[in-house]
C-alpha cells in the first residue's frame, strides 16, 4: 500500500497578517510557517495506517525552497520520502495541475489532503486534482476505515455526518475528527535525526495556466468598541438586541 500526503504550508495560526508593496503582497517577515492543521490530522492518520499495514508514506508539496523545513517535519514525524515541486502556488488550478502531473506515473492507493489551507481558505486544490486525474474524491472526511479493497469514509454534512462506501485509489480532504486531537504527532529527536537522511526530491514545475490573480489585499475594517451592559441591567441588553441590532 502506498499513501501520499499533499502538504500545504501555511502561516502559524497566531500570525499577525500584513501586506507590503502597497497591499499587493503578503508580508512573510517574521511569520512562522507550519503544516496546514487539516493536513496534520491527515498525516497522523497516514502514520497510523503505515504502522498497521506497513504502508509506504510519501509527501508532496508545491512551493518554494524555504518551505523545506516544514516538509522535513513530516519526514521527522515518519513519512518515508518527500517531493517538492519548485513553483509558487499562487493559483489553485496551477497548483492542482502540478500535483496532477506528479500523479500521472505514480500508483498511490490513498491520497490524503486537507479540507482547506488555512491561509487562503480555498478548499479547492484537492478537488481540482481529482477532476484532472479522475481519481475518486471525498471531502470533509472525519473518519476512514480500510477493509481490504473497500473503504468506509465518514463525511461531515450539514447538521450531521454520512458514511460512504468506496474503493481505492481515493483522494480525501481530511479535517479534525479524522484522528483524535491527542493522537497528533510531534517530531522527536530520533525522528529529526533520521529525517536528515531521508530523500527530499526537487522536481521542476510543468507549464500550466494561472486562472486567477490576487491583485490587492487589505485588512477588514476595525470593529467599533464594545457596548458594555451591566449584568444587573439585562433589560437594556434585550432592548439593544431588539431595537438596535434587530436580531431578536
Amino acid at each position: 500500500m502506498k499513501i501520499l500526503l499533499m502538504l500545504s504550508v501555511v502561516p502559524d495560526t497566531t500570525s499577525k497578517i500584513n501586506f507590503t508593496d502597497d497591499g499587493t503582497r503578503f508580508d512573510k517577515t517574521g511569520i512562522q510557517f507550519v503544516i496546514n492543521p487539516h493536513d496534520e490530522f491527515g498525516l497522523t492518520k497516514a502514520m497510523q495506517i503505515k504502522e498497521k499495514t506497513g504502508a509506504e508514506l510519501h509527501v508532496v508539496h508545491v512551493g518554494p525552497k524555504e518551505n523545506e523545513s516544514v516538509i522535513r517535519k513530516t519526514l521527522a514525524i515518519g513519512a518515508d520520502k518527500a517531493f517538492r515541486i519548485d513553483a509558487d502556488p499562487r493559483d489553485s488550478y496551477y497548483t492542482a495541475a502540478q500535483l496532477a502531473e506528479f500523479l500521472k506515473d505514480k500508483d498511490y492507493d490513498l491520497i490524503i489532503a486537507g479540507r482547506e489551507s488555512i491561509d487562503y481558505n480555498g478548499s479547492m486544490v484537492h478537488g481540482i486534482v481529482s477532476a484532472l486525474t479522475g481519481i475518486r474524491f471525498i471531502n470533509a472526511v472525519i473518519g476512514l476505515e480500510l477493509e481490504g479493497d473497500k473503504v468506509l469514509v465518514d463525511r461531515e454534512i450539514e447538521g450531521g455526518k454520512e458514511t460512504l462506501e468506496t474503493r481505492l485509489p481515493l483522494i480525501i480532504g481530511g479535517q479534525k475528527g479524522l484522528v483524535k486531537e491527542e493522537e497528533l504527532r510531534i517530531p522527536n529527536m530520533r525522528g529529526i535525526m533520521m529525517a536528515r537522511r531521508k530523500p527530499l526530491e526537487v522536481l521542476p514545475p510543468v507549464e500550466a495556466p494561472e486562472l486567477t490573480e490576487y491583485v490587492k489585499f487589505e485588512k477588514p475594517p476595525a470593529k467599533g468598541s464594545v457596548k458594555l451592559i451591566d449584568k444587573d441591567n439585562l433589560d437594556e441588553l434585550i432592548d439593544l438586541l431588539h431595537n438596535e441590532a434587530k436580531v431578536i
Partner: peptide, 9 residues
Amino acid sequence: LYFTPLLAG
C-alpha cells in the same frame, strides 16, 4: 464545497 472544485477542474 465538495462538488464545486470538481466542476472547476
